[in-house]
Design a protein around this nucleic acid. Sequence first.
DNA 1: CAGTCGACTATTTTT
DNA 2: TAGTCGACTG
Length: 721
Amino acid sequence: MTDFKKELNPLQYKAVIHPDGPLLIVAGAGSGKTRVLTYRIAHLTTRNISPSRILAVTFTNKAAGEMAKRVDKLVNAYVPVSTFHSFCLRVLRKENDRLPYADNFVVYDKSDQLTLIKDCMRRLNVSDKHTKPKMFANEFNHAKNKLITAGKFAEKINDYKKEVVANVYKEYEAALLKANAMDFDDLIMQCVLLFQNNSDILEKYQNKFDHMLIDEFQDTNFAQYTLAKLLVDKHKNICVVGDPDQSIYKFRGADIRNILDFEHDFKGADLITLEQNYRSTATVLNVANDIISNNKNRKEKKLWTENEEGEQICVYKAMDEHDEAEFVINHIREQMSGNPELSLNDIVVFHRIHALTRVFEDHFRRARMPHVILGDVGFYNRREIRDIVAYLRVIANQADDVNFKRIINTPHRGIGSTTQETLARYARSCNITLFEAAENAESVSNLSKAAQRKIVKFMQLIKGFCNAKSKLTTTELVKKVIDDINYIEKVCSSNDLQDRTRIENIKELISAAAEYDNTSEDEIPSIEGFLHEVALSSDIDNWNESEESVTLMTIHNAKGLEFPVVYIIGMEENLFPHYNSSDDPTDIEEERRLCYVGMTRAKKRLSLSCAYHRTVFGQRKVREPSRFLSEIPDEFIEVRISEHRDSFGAEEVPPVPKSKKSQNAKGGYSAGQRVVHSHFGNGKIESVTGKGDSARLTIQFDSLPNPKVLVAQYAKLRSLK
DNA sequence: CAGTCGACTATTTTT
DNA sequence: TAGTCGACTG
């Protein structure tokens, strides 16, 4: 049995063995927050509290899985750990008969949501000229995070814009219900509504759990906090862990007041503050402390450490983003060769926005440095995966109009937009789903005989799947769908790289289904269960941290992680802090917290970089170093300046050697000329538009199937003879 | 009906 | 720059 006292410091131990009642643990970065939570859960089980009577909630599925594993290791007990979303989904499925949704409801992700919103806008004749679908999505999400339903929203309209939003919101909610689908934020809101409207069910869950524990409490939103308050209302055995300085999800409705008000909401709550950092070197910690102390709106807290001073922070001022990438690669090599203990998976590159990874990926690939990029177009957002999953969704839930529309002509089967619109109009006039309309295709007089035939054939296919559903495992069904619709042959049969990766991805989807069939905690694995898992899975959940490669990810993804070597790139004004945050002081403070989170991930070595030039929206712009850089005292940093330039802010030295530059200046490119490109190799210029540096060259490279258009200034071409 | 071409717009961050 | 959307043509 674990000796809890021996493995924890006195404050951590106090938190772990704290008896019943509300407990707030304010835990600074690297102070052993997860450790405390894990040990506390483990400790509860030793107090004869059954694992199933503990409700533990973390921020990601990955963190949840890891915590469950660690508890198991400590006390040999399996305590299920959830995210708010997965917990709510489980409740909603279980208590389905109290909901207006049928039990096979699906979860809509962001892009399903946008499609549906566009539909609603079209139906209400709302132009997307000034009110973008995304804007509506944001409004709805925020409303749901505050538990404001469409009905409530409509009650407090004060201007025209709100009125439009209210109308679309109403239409959207109705459409969701009709499609038997919930969006992400519904999972929480519907669960809260369920509890609020059904006291017997609420009571059941209040009695089911003796203790509730919440990780990353600073990033909970109003709906989540309300849910927690409801659940623990009887026994008040709630333990929350968080750090206000690490609250970085305001855009998702996270409300820092949750943690600041906790002691007020739960009278008699105990507070334990953990301030000793075990993770980082003193230098890293000092720098992070200095940065965060610039936030005005914050509770004073100073982390300290007994760790060694460590090396200085490296700040690299690059010429441009290419130079920045080269620096990171070279620096990584330097670190690796001087340190045999170090492995590539000890190294991470953080960025504020995904767009920065493009250039890095290029350079990493060319340098043959193994790397993994998290996020951006995640696995389940790839077209081929979405296509197949759309079939599964319709098979599971025939009311799903959004996905029905997606699959009716994918792969092409001659059911074009005219036919689809006729079908949709028919469905609307009869107030039935597209699926039902398609079933009656033959009685829709506006459809041509040919169109009817094609729809009937398609419906036979789909109904075949629906009938097969109960007889097959998830894996078998996925395979059957892919085979029967001939997806690979019809959509990705060429031999180019893109199609080959598509096929790889499809294989991976089959593996994912197999994995679900084999390891799911669902009593009976089902296509619905698989779809729910898919809907709630995130990039970080699928990240394999033991792979021998450098990881690139956003700082938002880095929450709760730590790495020996950390790079933060793009430390420039309007990028970090981000442009959209630069005029609002509260937003700037959130950006600063984000910076703080990034820095405090580093155990040994932290490097920051910015570029003097960067191509933004395809245009080369002069950049200014981030204000955060100037918030670091000089004594902690070692500044390195790009060799391509003498001093920062001095006259720019051209990135390409003089000879090439002068050729550009002469406007020396002309059609028919043979050239060499560093990337694509030999090619022939087919045409030239414009002149000088901004000339656009259409070049047919020998290595590529199609011509490419490059801008002379950036193309870095060398003329042949 | 499907594929191509040009115009346009976009970058926060995610369960 | 690159990805998406709509118009146009075969």
